[in-house]
Design a protein around this nucleic acid. Structure first.
Length: 154
DNA sequence: GCCAACGTTGGC
DNA sequence: GCCAACGTTGGC
């Protein structure tokens, strides 16, 4: 089983939105980056766990844990001209973008902030993609060691 | 195939 | 709101 991190802007869709969703489940739509797409389409498996991360906000932090409940399938929002994530280059016969479904397992007891994690960037969390300068990937893998260390911070 | 221009991401 | 970093686009 692999571990991941999923970014979401709390102003758009935060951890409490997921907690309020039917069956605490949502499709992770709107990802328009090829590397992130490949992770969702090819590598994320049912039962994998992921950190739910709040980005582009006052306190960037990991705030919860989700599980993959449905593996990669075409992101239909790319087909809808009225959708903000519409991409005319993707059509149902040859989908360009994929998504997974995730379910909230639990919120963390407290947010693990980006600043806190950065304090370990040279030691326990060395190599963690989230801490790379200029990191813009919205779906990224987390090693088992980093996963365990971050959970221990909780 | 190169690279400048542009749009987006995301921390601060 | 600013701006650095990055991915994408399109002219050549």
């Amino acid at each position: 089983m692999r571990h991941w991190l999923l970014k979401s802007e709390p102003d758009v869709f935060g951890i409490d939105d997921l907690a309020a969703a039917p069956r605490k489940t949502t499709c992770w739509d709107g990802v328009r980056n090829y590397q992130a797409r490949n992770f969702m389409r090819d590598e994320m498996k049912r039962g994998d766990l992921a950190f739910f991360y709040h980005s582009n906000c006052a306190e960037p932090a990991i705030v919860g844990i989700v599980s993959v409940v449905k593996e990669g399938y075409p992101d239909h929002t790319a087909f809808d001209p009225r959708d903000p994530h519409y991409d005319p280059g993707s059509d149902p016969d040859a989908p360009r973008w994929y998504m997974v479904d995730v379910k909230l397992e639990r919120k963390l007891k407290r947010p693990i902030t980006l600043a806190e994690m950065r304090a370990h960037a040279d030691r326990e969390l060395a190599g963690f993609a989230l801490l790379r300068r200029g990191n813009r990937l919205s779906v990224l893998p987390v090693s088992d060691e980093h996963w365990r260390f971050i959970l221990a911070m909780e």
